[in-house]
Each structure stands twice: as structure tokens, then as C-alpha cells.
Measured scan of single mutants.
Amino acid sequence: MGFKLLSKLLVYLTASIMAIASPLAFSVDSSGEYPTVSEIPVGEVRLYQIADGVWSHIATQSFDGAVYPSNGLIVRDGDELLLIDTAWGAKNTAALLAEIEKQIGLPVTRAVSTHFHDDRVGGVDVLRAAGVATYASPSTRRLAEVEGNEIPTHSLEGLSSSGDAVRFGPVELFYPGAAHSTDNLIVYVPSASVLYGGCAIYELSRTSAGNVADADLAEWPTSIERIQQHYPEAQFVIPGHGLPGGLDLLKHTTNVVKAHTNRSVVE
């Protein structure tokens, strides 16, 4: 069995187990497998329904001669939608809004960016022009300005110390501490036991640490421990890039980060 097929099978099995364990909360999309990078042309966006009122959005972007996937989250909030992270750029984010209108038909009224990198804030200006209120932590807003990236308009308070959590509509926002970046936030959907790890969490097929220019490698494993301790009931975990899975993604990420750190020390 090929690795790609095995990865998709694991996603399907995880979703099936969740649907059985929580039949009222989960209505997993039966329309197909989780979209992969090879299936999404740059400039297009796919939506994948995880649970009743919960979707991931998947886009792709060219970077350094390669094409990478990027995940975000959409959560229903009454007759409105909360968006977590842009679709990595203005063109993708405009396509995301169009796809949401086509498939869901509810307005996106608020959006949260989970850290300051372009795959999370690139497209904020498109959201703002569409009347979406954009939010991020003060740290993310400051770092985005320093980096020359787009800056969300509103500040999220109460997320300055490791372990801080605040309720934001249908989700809980959690600051686990520094990891992929010093400002990275985690998003949890309690009604569906869905954990969105953003770039602080890796997919299972990833074996290298990737972009760690703004990471705190020493603190990252401790931050992941905080996530595990705060959300032990999480059933569906979405990484910032690639295929979702279960809580095993947290341990896998820790292993990859520690291996990278150990290699760096040896070198």
C-alpha cells in the first residue's frame, strides 16, 4: 500500500471513529477524501466538511520552486461564519470567499490569524475590503508590521502568557507558548472536538522541520505538551499544512522538532 493511500485511509478511519463516538456532533463529509496538494491548482481553494458547521479550507501556493498546501478553518456561528487564517495570499483568499459563498452561503463576518507569517495573514486586506472584521493577538499584529505583512485590524486580548485561553464565538483560542513562531495560536472547536494546530503542528508525513527561522526550538516541545494537557479530548487535529489526523500529530511534531534540534547540535 502506497504512503499517500495509507495517509488518506488514516484520515478516513479517524473521521469514521469520530462519527461513531459522537453521532450528534459529527456529520463528516462523505463526498470524498481530504484534498491534497496535487489536486488543488494554485489560485483555487477546496472546502472539506469535518463536522456539522465545521470545515477546513485548503489552498496551495508556490514557494521556492515548489507547491505547498495550506489549511485553515471555518466555523459556523449562528447565521454567520468565523474564518481562521487566510488562504495564503490575496488571490487565494478572494477564491476562498467565493467558494464559501458557493458552498455554504453564509457571510464571513470575523477572521482570526493564528500567527504573523504570510500563509496566515496574506489576504487580510481582501477580507477587510469584503467587510470582514480581522483579528490577531497584539504580538501577531506587531510582528506582521515588522515583517511588512498585512496586519489584522483588531487585537485579541488575554493571550499574552503561555497557557492563556479565551473564548471567541464558537471557538476557544489558546496560546501554548512559542513553537513554530513566538505568537502562534491554537484554535479548538469544543462542539466538535476539532483542534486546529496551525503551523505549530505537523502532518504525519512530514519528517523535516522546514521553516524554523522564527521558531523557538527549545520551547516548542513544552508548548505541545500544554496543548495535549489542555485538549486531551480532541479527536480531529488539523495541521497548518497537509493531512489531518488525531492527537498523534502532536507527538510526531515533537519528535521531528527534537530530531532537528539534535542534528543542529551535532553539526
Rank of each mutant, 00 (worst) to 15 (best):
M1E: 05
F3Q: 06
K4N: 14
K4Q: 07
K4V: 06
S7R: 08
K8S: 14
K8L: 07
K8D: 15
L9Y: 13
L10C: 14
L10Q: 15
V11G: 07
V11L: 08
Y12T: 13
L13A: 14
L13F: 13
L13E: 07
T14Q: 08
T14S: 09
A15C: 14
A15G: 08
S16M: 06
S16C: 15
I17N: 08
M18N: 15
M18Q: 15
A19N: 15
A19H: 06
I20C: 09
S22V: 13
S22R: 12
A25D: 14
V28C: 07
D29L: 09
S30L: 11
S30H: 10
S31H: 08
S31Q: 08
G32L: 10
G32I: 07
G32E: 09
Y34M: 15
P35H: 08
P35W: 12
T36V: 13
S38G: 10
E39R: 11
E39F: 10
I40E: 07
P41M: 13
P41I: 09
V45C: 03
R46Y: 11
R46A: 09
Y48K: 11
I50W: 07
I50V: 12
A51P: 04
A51E: 09
A51Y: 08
A51T: 12
D52V: 11
D52G: 11
D52P: 11
V54S: 04
H57D: 04
H57R: 04
I58W: 08
A59G: 15
T60K: 08
Q61V: 07
S62D: 10
F63P: 01
D64E: 08
D64F: 15
D64M: 15
D64Q: 12
G65D: 10
S70W: 01
N71P: 02
N71M: 03
L73E: 02
R76N: 05
D77L: 02
G78P: 05
G78T: 08
D79W: 08
L81M: 08
L82Y: 06
L83G: 01
I84S: 01
D85K: 00
A87Q: 00
W88D: 00
G89Y: 06
G89M: 00
A90F: 07
A90G: 11
K91D: 15
N92H: 01
N92V: 00
T93C: 01
A95C: 05
L96H: 01
L96M: 08
L97K: 00
A98H: 15
A98V: 13
E99S: 14
E99L: 14
I100K: 00
K102R: 12
K102A: 12
Q103D: 14
Q103A: 12
Q103E: 14
Q103H: 15
I104K: 00
I104P: 00
G105N: 11
G105I: 00
L106R: 11
P107W: 05
T109P: 06
A111K: 02
S113R: 03
H115G: 00
F116P: 01
H117P: 00
H117C: 00
D118L: 12
D119S: 01
D119V: 03
R120D: 02
R120G: 05
R120F: 01
G122P: 06
G122D: 10
G123K: 04
G123H: 04
V124A: 08
D125S: 10
D125V: 06
V126S: 06
L127G: 02
R128K: 12
A129P: 03
A130C: 06
G131E: 07
T134K: 01
Y135G: 01
A136R: 04
T140I: 05
T140E: 05
R141A: 08
R141Y: 05
R142A: 13
L143V: 05
A144F: 04
E145M: 14
V146A: 13
G148Y: 06
G148H: 11
P152Q: 02
T153M: 10
T153G: 10
S155G: 12
L156M: 08
E157L: 11
E157M: 12
S160E: 13
S161G: 13
D164Q: 13
D164E: 10
A165D: 08
V166A: 08
V166L: 12
R167H: 11
R167N: 12
F168I: 07
F168E: 02
F168Q: 03
V171E: 04
V171D: 01
E172G: 02
L173E: 01
L173W: 03
Y175T: 01
G177A: 03
G177Y: 02
A179L: 00
A179W: 04
H180M: 00
S181I: 00
S181T: 15
S181K: 03
T182E: 12
T182G: 10
D183L: 02
N184S: 04
N184V: 01
L185N: 00
L185P: 04
L185D: 01
I186K: 00
I186M: 06
V187L: 03
Y188V: 01
P190G: 08
P190A: 10
S191C: 05
S191V: 10
S193Q: 13
V194T: 06
V194N: 01
G197L: 01
G197C: 08
G197Y: 00
G198M: 06
C199N: 01
A200D: 02
A200M: 08
Y202T: 15
Y202H: 14
Y202D: 07
E203L: 00
S205W: 08
S205P: 08
T207I: 13
S208Y: 09
A209W: 06
A209N: 15
G210Q: 06
G210H: 03
N211A: 05
N211R: 03
N211Q: 08
V212C: 04
V212H: 06
V212Q: 07
A213C: 08
A213N: 13
A215G: 07
A215Q: 04
D216S: 10
D216L: 06
L217W: 04
E219S: 12
E219T: 09
E219P: 04
W220C: 05
P221F: 04
T222M: 12
T222K: 11
T222L: 12
S223K: 01
S223R: 02
I224G: 02
I224Q: 02
E225F: 12
R226E: 03
I227E: 01
Q229G: 12
A234D: 00
Q235C: 06
F236C: 08
V237D: 04
V237I: 06
V237E: 02
P239W: 01
P239E: 02
P239Y: 03
H241I: 02
H241C: 03
H241A: 02
G242F: 06
G242E: 06
L243N: 15
L243F: 12
P244V: 07
G245V: 03
G245I: 00
G245W: 03
G246P: 06
L247I: 13
D248E: 14
D248F: 11
L249C: 02
L249P: 01
L250G: 02
L250I: 08
L250E: 04
H252V: 03
T253D: 03
N255L: 10
V256C: 04
K258F: 10
A259M: 11
H260T: 11
H260V: 12
T261L: 12
T261D: 11
T261G: 11
T261W: 10
T261P: 14
N262D: 11
S264T: 11
V265H: 11
V266K: 12
V266R: 14
E267H: 12
E267P: 13
E267S: 06
